[in-house]
Design a protein around this nucleic acid. Structure first.
Lengths: 341, 341
DNA sequence: CTGAAAGCGCTAACAC
DNA sequence: GTGTTAGCGCTTTCAG
């Protein structure tokens, strides 16, 4: 039909608002109104236009509309990975909530060891998202500057300890560590160890743990780190140095459930009694921890809650509501006590 | 600067190509060339323009550029979930490859029990992505029609058995089941069972398994299904009916590693010897399976490979290369033999 | 309630 | 190598 020879292959976009308008015998603007503000059009014209839309298979070009209205109705999300269930949960809940409100999510994975953060943010901001979700705050200053200049609502998830650009939602990682130490202490432990991935947040939890241990008068027999991101394999490998120390009762905080699972596997193979000789607390509350035998004590994170809540903050701001000063939301975490501690 | 009073809050977009052009004393088109085709501009003007860009903090509006050039440089991806490591792997690899080629990924999660698939696809296609990745093919006809009319490169992942719209990458699920049956049979088994989630692909694997068992002359003692998506909990629950049947040697194919893990947990608690009394093969090759003790025999899926490969197909098409007939790529799967079978 | 004009910010196509 | 003109497909704004 519209498929003339030469030139780029015509797309679904080949039927446009003027085509619909012509077919329905109205002005393009009326078609636009039928789509965007139906209550301002008589039922009769609406019906005529709708019919034309259906008959022609018209799919409005939101790109063009966005250029004109200066609203892309897209939001960008930057997360370091989606392999981690916590982030997967955040992304899933966030995008569900956003889509319900008519926003599409542009996802960018990367930002842990991104070499060209500025390039990443240029690619994102060039698409003029209406809002932005980013993870943590360890970004390059140039990249951060771009974000600030974009003057769009920004929510930072995952870390609520540092000062946010705009809004932040997360928790204080070092407090998590401290809480776990107190939890162990409350169960009568006095020898402790920590097994942590080398990423800034995990290390911050480990430090919080170590400090609290000292304050409580306990002894920290091992502070072991392994490469990020956490894996079960890393947990098994990382436990090598720990096992010899388990001649006496010890409580271990692992910066991830995967590490905890790896450690427990090794403990089982070596016949170390859990939780009598070895007490373990993970982090993340993955399904694995709950369903493992024995079920693993862990810190529950509520990725879903974080994602939903981030969407809520942004949507409020997008609809003009809410304060315009930096805002910080603490997302709850809690220690889920199960059989390993 | 351009920050006049009144009107909506000015954004990063407030500085535009004409501002840069004016500042550098050139035409807007020259600025555009400096950004998009630098080799067609003298080094001197390039330098002058670059300086102006940096000084003003110009971030090109890709939305406007896209409208003009009819290329959004965005691709959409539709997956049912990212909680499953297989899909997480696909999305991660796909978006990495796409970003490297200058494309941004719009992610849509949902499509398993999506009520309004047509609405979802309208929201996606309205943004005029240059290409589309979708999962499976169980979509509503109206939704599929929209996709076809968009006339953009489409790759379907996850299932390569049905006829693709454009390109497909995946594997034949019933063949997976059959291969697992033959694998068990080759190890001397003659009693079989299958534990499957009730989603179409998983059921297709289960059927393939069941049929092959019959052909091989084995007996299928139980065909158990549980609600999708698969979880460890479902595996534990689903194993209840199976355990009483394990008075004699039996080989069980689970439609997911999570189910397999759940089953093995129950087996351990009931003192059932693995693999002597109970042989288990999972599906998905999650890290869990490799690092579990005992390591779980499973079917390896290569989500990463799938995602990368999907990106490759689309990029080839986007750059004008490749055939324009439907194309089907079989992504390899393989049975990874470990300790449970 | 409907329409006409103007323009969103950029690039294709064609001059010079 | 650089500039000019004319849109991309929609919505804003203002008139009727």
């Amino acid at each position: 039909m519209t498929d003339m020879a030469g030139g780029p292959v015509p797309r679904s976009g080949s039927v446009k608002i003027t085509d619909v308008a012509a077919a329905a015998g109205v002005a393009p603007m009326t078609v636009s109104r039928v789509i965007n503000t139906p209550d301002r059009v008589t039922p009769e014209t609406t019906a005529r236009v709708r019919e034309a839309i259906d008959r022609l298979g018209y799919v409005p070009n939101l790109i063009a509309g966005g250029l004109s209205s200066r609203k892309s109705r897209m939001v960008a999300a930057v997360v370091p990975t989606i392999a981690h269930p916590m982030f997967a949960g955040v992304v899933q809940a966030f995008s569900a909530a956003m889509r319900q409100a008519g926003y599409q999510v542009m996802l960018s994975i990367g930002g842990y060891d991104e070499t060209d953060e500025e390039g990443l943010f240029r690619a994102i901001l060039g698409r003029r998202p209406d809002a932005l979700l980013i993870t943590g705050s360890g970004y390059a200053p140039a990249a951060l500057q771009l974000v600030i200049e974009a003057r769009i609502p920004v929510v930072e998830i995952w870390d609520a300890s540092s000062r946010p650009i705009d809004m932040a939602i997360g928790f204080d990682h070092s407090r998590v560590g401290a809480d776990v130490a107190r939890f162990f202490h409350g169960k009568g432990h006095d020898r402790f160890a920590v097994l942590s991935a080398r990423d800034s947040r995990a290390l911050s939890r480990a430090r919080g743990f170590a400090e609290a241990v000292r304050q409580l008068g306990g002894s920290l027999v091992l502070e072991q780190t392994c490469p990020a991101p956490s894996t079960i394999a890393a947990g098994r490998a990382g436990s090598r140095d720990l096992l010899p120390l388990l001649d006496r009762r010890c409580a271990v905080f692992c910066s991830s459930d995967l590490l905890a699972f790896g450690l427990l596997t090794e403990a089982r193979l070596h016949g170390i009694a859990v939780p009598d000789r070895l007490a373990v607390c993970g982090f993340g509350n993955m399904e694995l921890s709950e369903m493992n035998e024995p079920p693993i004590t862990t810190v529950s994170l509520e990725g879903t809650e974080t994602g939903r809540s981030a969407a809520g903050l942004l949507l409020r701001r997008l609809s003009g509501g809410g304060p315009h000063e930096p805002e910080r939301v603490r997302v709850p975490f809690r220690i889920v006590e199960r059989a390993t501690a």
